[in-house]
Design a protein around this nucleic acid. Sequence first.
DNA 1: ACAAAATAGTTATAGTATAACATAACATAC
DNA 2: GTATGTTATGTTATACTATAACTATTTTGT
Lengths: 137, 137
Amino acid sequence: MNLVLNDGSPDLSENQKLVMDLLERKSGPLSAYMILDELRDSGFRAPLQVYRALEKLISIGKVHRVESLSAFIACSHMSCEKLGVTAFVICDKCENVQEVSDESISLFVTDLAIKTKMKAAKSNIELHGLCDGCQNI
Amino acid sequence: MNLVLNDGSPDLSENQKLVMDLLERKSGPLSAYMILDELRDSGFRAPLQVYRALEKLISIGKVHRVESLSAFIACSHMSCEKLGVTAFVICDKCENVQEVSDESISLFVTDLAIKTKMKAAKSNIELHGLCDGCQNI
DNA sequence: ACAAAATAGTTATAGTATAACATAACATAC
DNA sequence: GTATGTTATGTTATACTATAACTATTTTGT
């Protein structure tokens, strides 16, 4: 049993912590196999160790999967559990990824769900293009 | 040289036509390998034949890739070349996919691009959940 | 301590996509 | 019309992404 006072976030297993720390250090998106390679020295041997850790981290909102990159990125919002819907804005040149999460995003998703009579479970919103910096080169 | 009068859509190669017809017949999303299997009798032997046809069809807006399904679907709008941005609404139960393309979608994408100072090239908007029918079962 | 349940490790394999090279089809110049 | 360059297509091999099935370990409740 866990008697330690904490901030409300669930305890993470060793593997989950390793993956989380790595994603936070790198800050950009990493593929599952990049994560595996980076964590070999920490004892990772197989993809499933990565995927299982990611599954947990995604379920608690600390990591997101960027579908169009088949990659994973640490949540930039102190965890999205509360905030709900986010969008990713991806520069195809410098590969920088911004995570955007504001009222307009969740409003849009809510409206879309109503309009299509859907009970929404999950959304992926990803915008590719050139970031401010890369447009002017 | 092509001197035939047509509706403005570019000529498609035999393989491209086969893939396009299949996607239109099925109307739902198909993975590249499902397409390959369906077209073996028509002479398809290798994944690349499918991917190359898809690349072309996607570039002219007649087919979309649904990122979160790793699958491909015929455009339901007579081709999206003009219409621009679309969103996909996916029922996780019956696997039906609706393509939505209206002002509110493109407005949202435009706003997001401005807000993030991006020159947008491509967007993926995908909403997963339960459709109207599947909610009441 | 023991049984049941949850967690983690391992091996093998399925599913998705592209690189690299070979061949064929087609256009244009000569 | 044949040589030549260009584009489209075919083929083989391989890389990348993800999960199934099984085993071992750890944790938890009694």
